[in-house]
Design a protein around this nucleic acid. Structure first.
Lengths: 229, 229, 229, 229
DNA sequence: AATGAATGAGGCTTCATTCAT
DNA sequence: CATGAATGAAGCCTCATTCAT
């Protein structure tokens, strides 16, 4: 209903291209100035289209952000999968996680994958974290929070979904190569610890010790946790 | 001089009370709706005062937020110190960290302290995280907002300071009871891992496995890391 | 770049018209109520547009005032030049300032030019005088208003520039037709005397004697000063 | 209460003193920051009293300004009278204006009196001019102009009254010593010319030629006008 | 399909004035 | 009489969104 009325379904090539320009501009501006400070007018101009056109392709500023969110997380997920997949494939085929080196490789690969993931578009990553945090609002409800919270909820849902996927996949890895732990719980702890430590390293390096040392200790910690005793 | 013009210095009794009402209302609304969406008018109304009164006590919306931030972090820090101090004191006097139980207690206590800290005012904690993240914006500059960014910087400075204190203290603990690690780096890794895992448990429980299990695994991980070769 | 973000550059026909409406309304209201008491909302309403439109065309209330100022002074200057030019051309070609009649004509023409100039938009003239006076404030500084004072400075610069032009031109006239005086100083004295006397006649007629008599005496005074002995 | 019971005079004395403090502070602040930018709170603080006290002595901010206006003009008038009176008295008793020197003295004295008058409190003088100009608003009336215009009207009335006195007195001088002119009209022209030229010299010296030269030419002009056929 | 002009609610902040203590 | 806390209307400005061309 909504879509058929207000949103143009790209049929022609030019259409698709215009849409892409808007998404690209949005990505850039959301990353650089944040969701609130990036104005629709500004985005439209950066995309080389008129404001009106923006609203021909997206019902909302929110909608654009949502789409970007989704795309971004798809990228991250793909990259993590790729990286770890390759890390594992580079191991002797039959027993990837059995050797000590193999075990260490798994941990190292995962960490590097997360590390790389932050590099895709660091500022956008930050902005997304921000929206997710913001989405946790008002459990008691307020009735007035309305619109913005609606988006926050949706962004959060999307990101949650991606997180679940990442964790599910990590769970599977753990189940196969470090079966001594409750895989699901272990996956959660490992993911959050690694993600957050790396995040800090990336965004607040001045509050952290030397990056290499931190990565080293983080690896040690996860390795010891997953593969000992 | 400056202050006497813009900020009301409480002279009468009523005054102090009004100020408190504003702070309370601010805390509540910042927590529930976030800094940006909590309007001054709204805060004033919630505090049962007129807008003008708000500006009699605070030069800015920012100023209120800053004050709340500071108070909040002071609370958190105090609570952490208390909790861990007690946890250690409850150990056999001569060798707090020498026994296995003592070692486990240290980890457990720290985790519980962080866990409790999130309970003081969870939503406000979230909002602060948000501001810190947001403060990292636009390194290239853009002629950005000035004002808002200024506050972000300040909030971040305050929070950074607190974080540094917490980490310094954690470093000291590690130096004394788990000297096998590089204390500073270990402190950073441990703090971030614990903080984030607990944060997730608190704010996004539906994306995490059973809390008790997570806490258990987190403890195991940190314990193994700190006290096993 | 800057402009394209804050100021609407008329592309459509409607646009230019709207802009004109705003300028007209602004002129009217600044004239009637003064700069400070004429609100943007009010101006917008008078122009038949929304506040937002105002800010689409002008970055500021100041900007509108400045534009009006400039236009106004251009008009005045043009009118003075015209009037005096014609007054001189109407003289016997070879010796415009040599005869007694010619000399009187010059004085008379100048006075009438100034007189007419006040008729373009008397109230606006008053408002400008006001801004110029106000601009002379706080030489010691006080951490003054910044914004408003900035505009005062600008208005004053603009008006000063116009005044300099008028005086330069008057100096030239005097140099050619009444060379007995130090032309520059004479121009200043003549200009200020005439301007102010006429100004009073226009704005505070009830505090002045019969206009015709005043104009007559003013002419006599200036004539005697410029062309005798 | 206590005081009013036991001692009456001291209370009134203190009262008068407080009042005086407010007037002084107001004078200073109106002069330095202008009527609008000088806040009641600020004035009260400068006077060393509470805001409430301000309103015990003056019904209005306007009322204070009015009183200051009046006092200020009384001073100016007194000074002019003094100066010129002395100037005249210093002449040979029987024929003050008959000699050429006497005539020149009259003109010179008047100019110096005006010149001195500007020195009493130049900034306040400026502010008054400003209010007077602002008072000339809306001949058509608007109905919404209300309060502020009310004060403007009053200030203007007061100042007009003073001006009328000055002119009346100048008229008398002219009638006696330069009877060849229509005294009233001549007084107006002379007064305005001198006043404005001096005003410019005082407030906008950078737009005027050398002060001494200007004063010299102004004197010449007025002298020639008044005392030559 | 595209354009960009127009909208207006809503945000932050100031300050003359009142009134309880 | 003095105090200073409280009031709230009013001002300037932003920006997501709609709609005539």
């Amino acid at each position: 209903m909504k879509e058929s009325d207000s949103v143009r379904v790209p049929v022609q090539a030019r259409s698709r291209q215009t849409r892409e320009q808007i998404v690209t501009a949005g990505r850039e501006l959301f990353a650089r100035k944040g969701y609130l400070r990036a104005g629709v007018k500004e985005i439209a101009r950066a995309a080389g289209v008129a404001v009106g056109s923006f609203y021909a392709y997206f019902p909302d500023k929110q909608a654009l952000f949502l789409e970007i969110t989704e795309g971004y997380y798809r990228q991250i997920f793909a990259r993590i999968q790729d990286a770890v997949g390759q890390g594992i494939r580079s191991e002797p085929f039959t027993s990837p996680g059995q050797t000590r080196d193999g075990q260490q490789a798994i941990v190292g690969t995962m960490i590097h994958a997360l590390y790389d993931a932050h590099d895709i578009e660091p500022e956008l990553h930050r902005e997304l974290q921000l929206m997710i945090l913001a989405g946790g609002t008002s459990p008691g409800g307020d009735g007035a929070d309305d619109r913005d919270t609606a988006m926050h909820r949706i962004v959060r849902e999307r990101v949650d979904a991606m997180d679940r996927e990442v964790q599910a996949w990590l769970t599977e890895i753990i189940r196969r190569y470090a079966p001594s732990r409750d895989p699901e719980t272990a996956a959660a702890v490992v993911f959050r610890s690694a993600e957050e430590t790396i995040h800090r390293l990336k965004f607040f390096p001045e509050t952290m010790p030397c990056p290499d040392a931190v990565i080293g200790e983080l690896s040690s910690m996860l390795y010891a946790y997953l593969f000992h005793e």
